[in-house]
Structures are given as C-alpha cells and as structure tokens.
Amino acid sequence: MKIPAIEYSGIVYRAHHPMWSFRPLSGEGAKQHGGRFNRPGISALYTSLDPTTAWMEAQQGFPFKPQPMTLVAYQASCTDVVDLTKVKTLKALNLTKGDLASPWEYMANQGQEPPTWQLAKKLQEIGYAGVIVQSFAPGCKEENRNLVLWDWSDAPPHRIAVIDDLGRLPKSVESWKTDGK
C-alpha cells in the first residue's frame, strides 16, 4: 500500500529557549541532540499545531516547574507530509502508536535504534518532508499534535515563515550578552 501524503497549511508554534530565539528556523538543536524523529546529525524542525502543545513539548523535563520560553508562531504550507495520527497510515507503515511513543531517548542511550528513527529515515528516503504526529510530552492528550519537518525552507513546497511582523525577535546572540556573565 502506498503511504498517503497530505498538505499541511496553517499556523504552527514552537516554544524556544529565549537565548536561541534569534534562530527560530535553524533546526540545529535537534541536529545536535537528536529527537524523536531525527537521529543526531540530521536537522529537524519540531513545531506544534497549537500553542499549548508547543509549551508542553518545550517543558518536558519541567512540567511542574516551567522554565522561561519564547513562543514563536509560523505560517506553514508544506506538501509531502505523512499524517501518523491516522490508523490506516500506521498500518501501511507496519507501525503502532506504541512504536511512536517508544522511549526514544532511553533507547538511543542504550545503543538501540528507536523505531521512530527508522521510520524517519525511511520516509526521508522516499521523499517525504515530515510528519504530523501526536505529542507524547507529559500532560498531552491524543488531540495534541506536532508537525515535524526534515525538509523546510522559505519557499514552496515546504514553506515555513516566522510570524514577526513587528520585528520583536532578537537578530543575534549578541542581544543576550551582558556584563560578561
């Protein structure tokens, strides 16, 4: 069975560590550390379909002691996206929701390859730009969803544009430097 692709068009959100909000489209943090849908060395842009999910994703380690974040909105218009919230799509990929929710970080630290890394590699090789998937952050429910991209730019067919009409985001890391601390 062919894996169905969709086009996602709408606003998505990311909650950034304030110091890195001057590079809201980089994907470098995910490239450096890896994530549920990318192994270290592979860039990925993790966004959420609503602001609450973005906040919960960013606070995973501190659900009861929130840390400061900068919430950024993006206008997205991306083709070639696989919707992993659909049972039919999971069946076509021979996956379960449990595979998606697997403890990817623990597995990676144990030298195992998480099933979500295998899936991401397979989908990238076929030419898909990303996935829509349920958030597995603490406190999230089935309706909390993310758009994760491996292929994005400022132009179609995988366009992501920061919404910052008033120029409020910092332009460089220099804005965070203080009296040498």
Score class of each variant (00 low, 15 high):
A54Y: 12
E57G: 05
N144E: 07
Y128R: 04
G180N: 11
A120N: 10
W152D: 03
L166K: 03
L119T: 04
S77N: 15
T89F: 08
N144I: 00
Q32F: 11
F136C: 01
A155M: 02
P103Q: 11
L119D: 01
T96A: 07
Q112S: 10
W117H: 15
L149K: 00
L147Y: 14
L45F: 13
Q118N: 08
T79R: 10
A161N: 08
M1C: 06
A73G: 10
L169Q: 06
A108M: 08
V148S: 04
E125C: 02
K171R: 11
R36L: 05
E113L: 04
E57P: 10
K97I: 03
T96F: 08
F22W: 14
F62V: 06
A92G: 12
A120Y: 11
P156Q: 02
S172Y: 13
A15T: 04
Q118D: 07
L166C: 02
Q32R: 12
G61V: 12
G130L: 01
V131S: 05
A120M: 07
V131Q: 03
G98C: 09
E142T: 15
P68T: 01
L93V: 03
E142L: 13
W55M: 09
G139L: 04
L49E: 03
A44N: 07
L147P: 02
R39N: 07
G180D: 14
T53W: 11
L49I: 05
K122A: 08
N146V: 00
D165P: 01
S21V: 06
F37V: 01
A58K: 01
L149N: 04
K91Q: 13
A101Y: 04
G127P: 00
P115Y: 02
Q112F: 15
S43P: 04
V82I: 13
T79D: 15
S77I: 01
R145N: 12
E7H: 09
D50T: 09
D179Q: 07
R39I: 02
A76Y: 04
S26H: 04
I163E: 12
G10Y: 05
D179M: 07
I160N: 06
V12Q: 03
G139P: 12
V133R: 06
K2W: 08
H158F: 07
A44L: 08
K141C: 09
P115Q: 00
G130K: 00
G167L: 01
F64V: 14
V82W: 00
P103V: 09
M107F: 13
G61R: 14
Q59N: 13
T79Y: 04
G34F: 05
S175F: 14
Q112K: 12
Y13A: 01
G27P: 03
P157G: 03
S48Y: 13
L147D: 08
W152C: 08
G98A: 15
T79H: 10
S172P: 14
L90V: 05
M56E: 04
C140Y: 06
V87T: 13
N144K: 00
H16F: 15
T79M: 07
Q112L: 14
D80S: 14
H17S: 09
S175P: 08
D50P: 06
I3S: 05
H158D: 06
W104R: 01
E174F: 14
V82Y: 01
M69K: 14
Q59M: 15
D99N: 15
S77L: 05
A101V: 06
V131K: 02
L169W: 12
Y46E: 01
T52I: 12
